[in-house]
Amino acid sequence: VKKMAKAIMADPNKADEVYKKWADKGYTLTQMSNFLKSKTAGKYDRVYNGYVIHLD
Protein backbone atom coordinates (compact mmCIF):
# COMPACT_ATOMS: atom_id res chain seq x y z
CA VAL A 1 0.00 0.00 0.00
CA LYS A 2 2.79 2.43 0.86
CA LYS A 3 4.46 1.75 -2.49
CA MET A 4 1.26 2.66 -4.32
CA ALA A 5 0.75 5.69 -2.07
CA LYS A 6 4.24 6.89 -2.99
CA ALA A 7 3.37 6.36 -6.67
CA ILE A 8 0.32 8.63 -6.23
CA MET A 9 2.44 11.27 -4.55
CA ALA A 10 4.95 11.14 -7.41
CA ASP A 11 2.26 11.14 -10.11
CA PRO A 12 -1.23 12.22 -8.98
CA ASN A 13 -2.65 11.03 -12.32
CA LYS A 14 -2.35 7.46 -11.00
CA ALA A 15 -4.66 8.14 -8.06
CA ASP A 16 -7.97 6.98 -9.56
CA GLU A 17 -6.42 3.73 -10.79
CA VAL A 18 -4.85 3.00 -7.40
CA TYR A 19 -7.99 3.94 -5.44
CA LYS A 20 -10.05 1.60 -7.61
CA LYS A 21 -7.63 -1.27 -6.91
CA TRP A 22 -7.79 -0.58 -3.19
CA ALA A 23 -11.59 -0.41 -3.23
CA ASP A 24 -11.77 -3.65 -5.25
CA LYS A 25 -9.62 -5.31 -2.58
CA GLY A 26 -12.07 -4.07 0.04
CA TYR A 27 -9.68 -1.85 1.98
CA THR A 28 -11.57 0.17 4.59
CA LEU A 29 -10.68 3.71 5.59
CA THR A 30 -9.46 2.41 8.95
CA GLN A 31 -7.17 -0.08 7.24
CA MET A 32 -5.84 2.61 4.92
CA SER A 33 -5.22 4.95 7.83
CA ASN A 34 -3.26 2.25 9.64
CA PHE A 35 -1.26 1.29 6.51
CA LEU A 36 -0.36 4.89 5.73
CA LYS A 37 0.64 5.99 9.22
CA SER A 38 4.12 7.39 9.13
CA LYS A 39 6.62 8.86 11.53
CA THR A 40 6.28 11.98 9.42
CA ALA A 41 2.84 13.15 10.49
CA GLY A 42 0.68 14.12 7.57
CA LYS A 43 2.94 12.63 4.90
CA TYR A 44 0.14 10.59 3.32
CA ASP A 45 -2.83 12.81 4.21
CA ARG A 46 -3.40 13.76 0.56
CA VAL A 47 -3.52 10.08 -0.46
CA TYR A 48 -5.89 9.15 2.39
CA ASN A 49 -8.19 12.11 1.70
CA GLY A 50 -8.29 11.21 -1.97
CA TYR A 51 -9.35 7.67 -1.09
CA VAL A 52 -12.10 9.05 1.16
CA ILE A 53 -13.45 11.06 -1.76
CA HIS A 54 -13.15 8.05 -4.08
CA LEU A 55 -15.24 5.89 -1.75
CA ASP A 56 -17.89 8.59 -1.38
Rank of each mutant, 00 (worst) to 15 (best):
H54G: 02
V18S: 03
A23T: 08
K21C: 14
L55I: 08
V18F: 08
L36Q: 01
K6H: 10
I53K: 15
R46M: 14
A41K: 14
E17I: 10
A41F: 09
Y48C: 07
D11K: 06
A10N: 11
V47I: 12
L55G: 01
A15K: 06
Y44S: 02
Y19W: 03
N13H: 11
K14G: 06
D56C: 15
K43P: 05
W22A: 00
P12E: 08
Y19M: 03
K20I: 08
P12M: 07
A10F: 10
Y51C: 03
T30F: 13
Y44D: 01
V1R: 03
Y27W: 08
K3H: 09
G42K: 05
N34T: 10
D11V: 04
K43Y: 12
G42W: 04
Y48P: 00
K43E: 14
A23P: 00
D24E: 14
N49F: 13
K43F: 11
Q31K: 05
K39M: 10
Y44I: 02
D11I: 05
N49S: 09
N13G: 12
S38G: 07
M4P: 03
N13E: 12
I8N: 01
K2P: 03
K20C: 07
T40V: 11
Y51M: 02
M4L: 11
T30Q: 13
A10L: 13
S38M: 05
K39P: 09
Y19I: 02
A5Y: 02
Y48W: 06
E17H: 07
N49R: 10
N34A: 13
N49K: 11
W22C: 04
D56Q: 15
K2D: 03
K37V: 10
V47G: 00
G50N: 04
W22V: 00
D56M: 15
K21M: 15
K20W: 05
M4C: 11
L36N: 01
T40G: 08
P12G: 07
K43D: 06
D56S: 15
M32W: 01
K43N: 06
G50C: 08
R46A: 15
S38D: 13
N34D: 14
Y44Q: 02
E17R: 08
Y51N: 01
A7M: 15
S33Y: 13
I53P: 02
Y51F: 08
Y19Q: 00
Y27S: 01
Y19A: 00
T30K: 12
M4D: 15
V1C: 08
Y44F: 10
K39A: 12
A23F: 08
K25T: 11
W22G: 00
K39T: 14
D16H: 14
A7Q: 12
A10K: 14
K21A: 15
M4V: 04
D56I: 15
L29C: 05
T40Q: 11
K43R: 08
L55T: 04
I8Y: 00
K2T: 05
P12F: 10
P12L: 07
G50Y: 04
K25N: 12
Y48H: 03
A10W: 09
A15W: 06
N34F: 12
K20F: 06
S33R: 15
A41Q: 12
N34W: 11
G26R: 05
A41P: 15
K20Q: 12
K3I: 08
A5F: 03
T40P: 15
K39F: 09
T28S: 09
A5I: 06
G50D: 07
D24R: 08
A15D: 04
V47M: 03
S33D: 10
Y44A: 01
W22I: 01
L55M: 08
K6D: 15
K43G: 05
D16I: 11
D56L: 15
D16Y: 13
Y19P: 00
L55D: 02
A15Y: 03
V1T: 03
K14I: 15
L29H: 06
H54V: 06
D45F: 04
V47E: 01
D56F: 13
V52Y: 06
E17F: 10
A7I: 13
T40F: 10
G50R: 01
K6Q: 14
D24I: 08
